[in-house]
Amino acid sequence: MADGSVVLSVEDISITYTTQRGIVQAVSNVSFDLHAGETLALIGESGCGKSTIVLGLIGLLPKTGKITTGKVTYRRRDGRLIDVLGLNKEQMRQFLWNECSMVFQGALNSLNPVLKISSMIYDTARAHGMRADEAKKRALSLFEKVRLDPLRVFNSYPHELSGGMRQRVLLATALLLRPQVVIMDEPTTAVDILTQRSIIKVLKQLREELNFSVIFISHDLAVAAEIADTVATMYAGEIIEKGPVSEVFYRPRHAYTLGLLEAAPRLSTGAEELMSIPGSPPDLIDPPKGCKFHMRCRFVTDECKTTKPPLQASSPT
């Protein structure tokens, strides 16, 4: 659980992509703080900018992407503050995985098919000055923690492992260098139900033992409900609602969050009435004025069409 100190602070970040049709405003003025031990879920649908933010944070935006405004501050364990966007290439390389690691969606494609798991571990360790024997020891103990057969997996090629096993390998690898922040991009999306359950279980347990912070990117409200401390809903490149998980799920303030919740089927209820949100997200080359959701919103007023609402606390938390 969060102990209050901010590990990663994102202030007013905006990211654009240059395309043939024009400039896409993929992320607009997004700010959030990530506390030590906190799990922040960024939820939203495809194209809302949730993945773009994290690619921007770790300097892996494609060449067409550009961070236009904003500041990202990271606080190291020794208390030193790092201006992440100001890091040069080599400093960024060292920052990655040491301080902030990532688990990507699609576990098979995340692993080089011609290298053994061991090579991946050794490569990562060598890149950050960790000794090979120490890396192996650490990897084996992490594999154990994520309930894999450590030695077998260590000496395997990716295609010899099942989807769930590969995802757990990636989870373990993310923790190899004891980072403070782990970014997870839809880690449970392409996996089966029982596999998803085992990954969630392992993740919760690791978080408790190793106390890292997580930025969890997902379109799946149910997984977010299960593991997040804080939830931020994104729409059309903006965070439109942010708060503790119970607030956001039980007392949504934004019509879009409400719409998402009303569209999510649940198992434990009987017959249920679900609603979809009419229309589709706006074109971010030419975003609408005012609130970007107003064309789809059932509570729309004239003011919504002209004035952009700021993100503000509307309930004491």
Binding site: R197, I200, L221, A222, A225, E226, L267
Partner: peptide, 10 residues
């Protein structure tokens, strides 16, 4: 195993 979009329930 299925998570639910309801923090308390899930």
């Amino acid at each position: 195993a299925v998570p639910e979009a309801d923090p308390d329930v899930t």
